[in-house]
Design a protein around this nucleic acid. Sequence first.
RNA 1: GGAGGGAUGCCUGAGUGGCCGAAAGGAACAGUUUGCUAAACUGUCGUACUGGCAACGGUACCGAGGGUUCGAAUCCCUCUUCCUCCGCCA
Length: 423
Amino acid sequence: MLQVNYIRENREKVLERLGVRNFKQPELVDEIIKLDEERRQTQTSLDNLSAIANANAKQVGELMRSGKKEEAEAIKAETTSNKEHIKTLSEQLNVAEQHLYNALVQLPNLPGELVPAGATPEENEVVLTHGAPAELHGKALPHWELTSKYDIIDFELGTKITGAGFPVYKGKGARLQRALINFFLDRATEQGYREMQVPLMINEASGFGTGQLPDKEGQMYHSTVDNLFLIPTAEVPVTNLYRDVILKEEELPVKNTAYTPCFRREAGSYGAHVRGLNRLHQFDKVELVQVVHPDKSYEVLEEMSAYVQSLLKDLGLHFRVLRLCGGDMGFTSAMTYDMEVWSAAQQRWLEVSSVSNFESFQTNRLKLRFKGNGGKTQLAHTLNGSALALPRIVAAILENYQTEDGIIIPEVLVKYTGFDRID
RNA sequence: GGAGGGAUGCCUGAGUGGCCGAAAGGAACAGUUUGCUAAACUGUCGUACUGGCAACGGUACCGAGGGUUCGAAUCCCUCUUCCUCCGCCA
């Protein structure tokens, strides 16, 4: 959520940046400015009336103490009518704040300076490409055939237990997945991230904090009796650890990592693009979250991007890095890099990581601030990134490392898996 | 699930209707003293909204939301949460 003060003082700039995003309702900006004006007027009137009421109450107390009962009664009578006004004004204030809030939450984050304008994924900018497509033997298979050939992931069995999109990992498939999780967590720890284990269910306040609520509740599984949601990403619980927190400046940057399963309802389409591991309702992911000084957030974005790339290099995968255009970025992001690995058998790029700088968009809602020595408290910046999302990495490994007589395990993983091939 | 007791500022903790945005101590920060460290002393020391060029004001907040009252940290109701005991249980 953007800060009202900023919108009020930078109207032109806000409109210009929203243009980069191809935002469809620029009129919202002026509406917000108008609603804010109403809110402030109401606030001022209410404050003035309250000041009178407070002064009167104080006077009554003094009069009572000095025994001047009649004078006290007179003031009491006066205040009664004042109270009515205060009540209606504070109701008006609530309404005004609600209207302002409702409008504010509809405004997406402003794209950073480097973000290319654009509306569709075709307008994303390819920042770099690393490696070359793996050379496969003639009978190369897509991963959903490899998984059944070697009996390592069972989609039908998951359907029996739950439904489509909930695979069962078996034997070496399960161990490969666990190996990757451990590899990612160990590497993150080496990079200075603190490993966390967090709840997999979140309440409404947490959903609001990171921007899943309002409006995007449809993407999450909802336990209605308890009003709790299954997490769509570890970003939600890990970032919300710092909701309503004022950090000391020297505590920055805060670097946390967490492995969690993630749950996404997303209305399923069918076909090759969502086949096999390409899109699931439940999947595993190791996530990185940083809370940083506002001056550092773009530097840290580059650092996180480089780190994610190093993982892909270690796994020997052919990948590319995209800087998303304004229209393809998430609602809360100011700048996003997507990492995509080449799926040799499917002949297409698969997104395996998304690294974003949210600037103060989340921290404004979270009330996550920091305070320097003698300095003013101000909003921190947050960033996060997947490092990495498991299923498509597994898919890419299976497809790119397949040979006629088995799948070779990338060397860095062997000490985690305990075996060097699946056959 | 049952019974009881709590929730106050960075921390500990006082405060049962007005003089309380809140005592006291500690921590932290700044300064004085000091050969250095320590100690001592002095000062600063919540957040947000809002008025004002500023100086300096106003308002709200003592877990959250309602209520009683001229006036609520203090009384009443609901909720959340923590602790103790009992029951159940991975």
